[in-house]
Simulated scan of single mutants.
Amino acid sequence: MKPWILGLTGGIGSGKSAAASHFGSLGVHLVDADQAARWVVEPGRPALTHIVDRFGEQILQGDGALDRAALRTRIFQAPEERQWLEQLLHPLIREEIRNVLDEARSPYAILVSPLLVESAAQRQMSQRVLVVDVPEQVQIERTVQRDQVPEEQVRAILQAQASREERLRHAHDVLVNDRDLAWLQREVERLHEFYLSLQGGQS
């Protein structure tokens, strides 16, 4: 029987990666949308050739890999370039995610994506949505500590992501991650037991 798909999301610094990794250690098959986005532009993949054709060789690093910072700078200045890039990459990322999910042998599989709420296509792939949620101040403190970046930068990222309210509106389940890692892992184990009892992700 094909596994049903749980979409796992949360804002920056919410702990969604820690939650995902604990689900993984329980034997749940995971696919990470961010990783899929990186795979599709690796050297030798057709997408990278298209990007170089469009933006020129200066978009590459010395080793032939994509220079993400240079590309970000280019597309932030020109909305039409960003649109072009999204039209090129989004179908490829979707296909990559599908391929990885098709390999799943666990009763349910997880699509981990920071943009699950913003991306209708990714949301449609999921039968159920779990949001890892924390108060905004906690998100900011954790991210500043983890990435050693200024608070303003974290606030700017928060502004660009879906609002907490918007994410919670799409949630079937919410894991409030405002305690320690041991507590988060116990919550994941509790949800895992519940998810194993579900048919097709619906309770």
Results as ranks from 00 to 15, higher is better:
12 I>D: 08
27 G>P: 00
48 L>C: 09
76 F>K: 13
11 G>W: 04
40 V>F: 03
47 A>Y: 02
62 G>S: 14
154 V>M: 09
84 W>L: 03
9 T>Q: 04
49 T>A: 09
70 A>T: 14
137 Q>R: 09
94 R>G: 09
36 A>H: 00
193 E>D: 13
105 R>W: 03
46 P>A: 11
27 G>F: 07
59 I>K: 04
19 A>C: 14
203 S>D: 10
27 G>E: 07
43 P>H: 12
29 H>Y: 06
161 Q>M: 02
98 R>S: 10
73 T>W: 04
81 E>N: 12
166 E>L: 14
36 A>T: 00
80 E>N: 13
191 L>W: 13
172 H>Y: 04
102 D>L: 10
34 D>Y: 06
166 E>F: 11
105 R>N: 12
107 P>S: 09
12 I>A: 02
194 F>G: 11
182 A>K: 14
26 L>A: 01
184 L>R: 02
7 G>S: 10
16 K>V: 00
70 A>P: 13
105 R>K: 15
6 L>S: 01
121 A>R: 12
151 E>H: 04
200 G>C: 11
10 G>C: 00
156 A>E: 15
109 A>V: 05
11 G>Q: 11
96 E>K: 09
142 R>V: 03
58 Q>S: 14
191 L>T: 03
196 L>S: 08
66 L>H: 06
174 V>A: 07
60 L>P: 02
25 S>M: 08
34 D>F: 01
45 R>Q: 13
165 E>N: 13
147 D>N: 12
17 S>Q: 01
137 Q>D: 13
127 Q>H: 11
74 R>S: 09
81 E>I: 06
12 I>V: 15
50 H>V: 12
167 R>D: 10
147 D>R: 06
85 L>E: 04
114 P>E: 06
179 R>G: 10
59 I>H: 02
34 D>S: 10
82 R>D: 08
119 S>M: 09
183 W>H: 15
62 G>I: 07
128 R>S: 05
138 V>P: 04
184 L>F: 08
19 A>P: 04
68 R>T: 03
39 W>R: 10
45 R>H: 13
19 A>I: 08
63 D>H: 13
117 V>T: 15
106 S>I: 00
58 Q>G: 07
196 L>G: 08
59 I>F: 03
196 L>F: 01
73 T>A: 12
146 R>Y: 00
113 S>A: 15
77 Q>Y: 05
156 A>L: 11
115 L>I: 10
47 A>W: 05
131 V>R: 01
74 R>Q: 12
82 R>F: 08
162 A>S: 14
89 L>Q: 09
63 D>S: 09
113 S>R: 00
140 I>W: 08
146 R>M: 02
144 V>D: 08
117 V>L: 06
6 L>I: 12
85 L>A: 03
130 L>N: 06
65 A>D: 13
41 V>A: 03
55 F>A: 03
57 E>V: 15
140 I>P: 00
9 T>P: 14
72 R>P: 03
151 E>I: 08
186 R>N: 13
100 V>N: 00
107 P>K: 11
165 E>R: 12
2 K>P: 11
107 P>E: 06
9 T>W: 04
158 L>Y: 04
40 V>C: 00
133 D>R: 07
134 V>G: 02
64 G>H: 07
153 Q>P: 04
62 G>D: 15
78 A>N: 15
186 R>L: 12
195 Y>A: 07
155 R>Q: 15
72 R>V: 07
